[in-house]
Amino acid sequence: MKHKSEFLNFIQERGHPYQCTDAEGLDRVLSQNNHITAYIGFDCTAPSLNIGSLIQIMMLRHLQKFGYKLIVLLGGGTTKIGDPSGKDKARSVLPMENINQNISLEKVISFNDGKTGAIVENKADWLDSIKYIDFLRNVGVHFSVNRMLSLDSVKIRLDREQNLSFLEFNYMLLQAYDFVDLNKKHGCRLQIGGSDQWGNIVNGIELGKKFNLPELFGLTTPLLLNAKGKKMGKTENGAIWLDGSMLKPLDYTQYFRNVHDQDVGRFVRHLPICQLMRLKN
């Protein structure tokens, strides 16, 4: 499918888009206005991201290349709860001192005051100050428990009779509110995330409608999986970190040299910065 937006055509050629809440609407907005602001959120569970976040990081770089404003959202608030999406059991509640408040992406995108300069926001800046009763009245009133129970992140756990704490159940409300807050502060209209975040992204868009915000959009990317269908990012020896101080560059390179032949073409298409024409030749 050919788009009017050069950005959408570019990422489509690389196989980045997986789901979109309104592909035609997003194409129209992106082609008419290059001042759209987009955001991607990252957990603060470690001082470094691992290779499971590489596609999202490349999306940030592509957005900036095509002239869009970026927000890197650190999950300093929601990390205190833990996202139940794609998890068979509850995440361990991290001690406050183990919740990292900074992830370095300066080598990939530019952070400055320019038109396309990326900015960093931390969820903790607004979530930590929320008054619970006010939040329930202003935000919780717009969420249907019936619908929340039907979401995969909840339904799978319940079908398996696995515990889902009330703490985790609140996660989707908090992430949905992120989108509303970022729109009010920065005019952000596009949220991008991995396909396992689809339900959370849709919740944010629906909440935006309740708050009478301009039309919001969601775009997901495929999870980085190997030939066996397992998520990339960890091995028997630990996570494949992106920070050279946490994983030797040689070990990082060796990891990709050892991937299955079936994975090579897909990874080369998803991850590099070089032109696809060079790769095809």
Rank of each mutant, 00 (worst) to 15 (best):
L8D: 09
V259E: 13
L74D: 10
N122L: 08
L73W: 02
V120A: 11
L207E: 05
H142F: 03
H186C: 07
G52V: 10
C44K: 10
G86A: 13
R189T: 14
L276N: 02
S129V: 13
D83N: 09
I103K: 08
A227K: 07
G15R: 00
S165R: 01
L250S: 15
E13Y: 02
L216Q: 10
I81K: 03
L182R: 08
H62L: 15
I119Y: 10
A227N: 07
Q56A: 14
R157D: 02
D263C: 02
K155D: 02
R61N: 15
M232W: 07
G194A: 11
F211V: 06
Q56T: 11
T78S: 07
S48P: 04
L216S: 06
I57C: 03
I81T: 11
Q262E: 15
H35E: 15
L213V: 00
N258L: 12
I240P: 02
L63G: 08
L167W: 00
H270S: 03
M172G: 05
N203Q: 13
K155V: 01
V120E: 13
I103W: 10
G193P: 05
E161F: 03
T235R: 12
N50A: 10
L149H: 04
V93I: 11
G193A: 05
L213W: 11
N163Y: 03
P214L: 13
W198Q: 00
H62D: 15
I205K: 01
L271E: 08
